[in-house]
Computed example of a mutant assay.
Amino acid sequence: MALEVGDLIPHFTAKNTAGKDFDSSSCIGKKPVVIYFYPKDDTRICTQQACSFRDQYEDFKALGAEVIGISGDSVRSHQKFSAQYQLPFILLSDSDKNIRNLFGVPTNWLGLIPGRVTYVANKEGVIIMVFNSTSGTIHIKKALEALKNNL
């Protein structure tokens, strides 16, 4: 069942780009968060999306928010992707799809491609926006609007 506006972000753990365990309780319920699920590192639309989050990362930080990108790629893939595009935010490896399933992120294109969904939660961990679109760059605008409208 997919998470919706009004739901609490569930607890999860995953490996970050340093290969260390990331625990969602380190930021969920403490500050606003933007969690975006994307299909694959180093593909055209996913790279556009990540670079758009990078380019506006300071806007998110100014609103007190953390940005977390999640895909099924390996830690090694995330390390390369993050270094190549100088991504300042958290990338998490969800190779077993546990987090994707926990959030209920759908697949696209006849179930062949992992979905692209962005969740914005307030500092209490309550989801204030869910945006599902194959377009990468519009997620950033929608997430910033949601944060600004819920300060």
Score class of each variant (00 low, 15 high):
Cys27Gly: 00
His78Lys: 07
Asp55His: 10
Val34Glu: 05
Ser93Arg: 14
Gln79Asn: 05
Ile68Ala: 07
Val126Glu: 15
Glu145His: 07
Glu124Asn: 08
Gly115Glu: 03
Ile113Asn: 11
Ile128Thr: 10
Leu63Gly: 00
Ala18Asn: 15
Ala146Val: 09
Pro88Ser: 09
Asn108Trp: 06
Lys30His: 13
Ile128Lys: 08
Ser82Pro: 02
Leu87Gly: 00
Leu63Gln: 08
Val117Pro: 11
Ile113Tyr: 05
Tyr85His: 15
Gly69Cys: 05
Gly29Phe: 09
Leu147Cys: 02
Ser135Trp: 04
Ser24Asn: 10
Trp109His: 05
Phe37Asn: 02
Tyr57Ile: 01
Cys51Asn: 14
Tyr36Pro: 00
Val75Ser: 13
Lys141Ser: 12
Ile127Trp: 13
Leu112Glu: 13
Asp55Lys: 09
Gln48Thr: 09
Ala143Asp: 06
Gln79Pro: 04
Val130Met: 05
Ser93Asp: 12
Gln79Ile: 10
Asn122Val: 11
Lys141Gly: 03
Asp23Trp: 01
Leu102Val: 10
Ser25Lys: 13
Ala143His: 07
Thr47Ala: 02
Val117Thr: 10
Thr107Trp: 14
Asp96Met: 06
Asp23Arg: 11
Glu66Tyr: 01
Gln49Asp: 07
Leu63Lys: 12
Lys61Asn: 11
Ser93Ala: 15
Leu91Tyr: 12
Asp41Glu: 04
Gly111Arg: 06
Arg100Asp: 00
Lys31Glu: 10
Gly72Asp: 08
Asp23Cys: 04
Asp94Ala: 08
Ser95Gly: 13
Asp23Gly: 02
Arg100Thr: 12
Pro114Arg: 07
Ala83Val: 00
Ser26Arg: 06
Leu147His: 12
Ser95Phe: 05
Ser93Gly: 06
Glu58Ile: 01
His78Asp: 04
Gly72Lys: 10
Gly136Trp: 02
Ile68His: 06
Asn16Ser: 14
Thr107Asp: 15
Ile68Asn: 02
Val126Gln: 15
Ser77Met: 14
Phe131Lys: 09
Ala121Ser: 15
Gln84Gly: 00
Lys142Phe: 14
Phe89Gln: 01
His139Asp: 13
Lys142Ile: 12
Asp21Trp: 12
Thr43Phe: 08
Ala50Cys: 10
Tyr36Ala: 01
Gln49Trp: 04
Lys20Glu: 15
Ser95Arg: 09
Ile140Gly: 07
Glu145Gln: 12
Ile138Leu: 06
Asp59Thr: 03
Ile140Ala: 00
His139Phe: 10
Asn98Tyr: 03
Asn122His: 09
Lys97Arg: 07
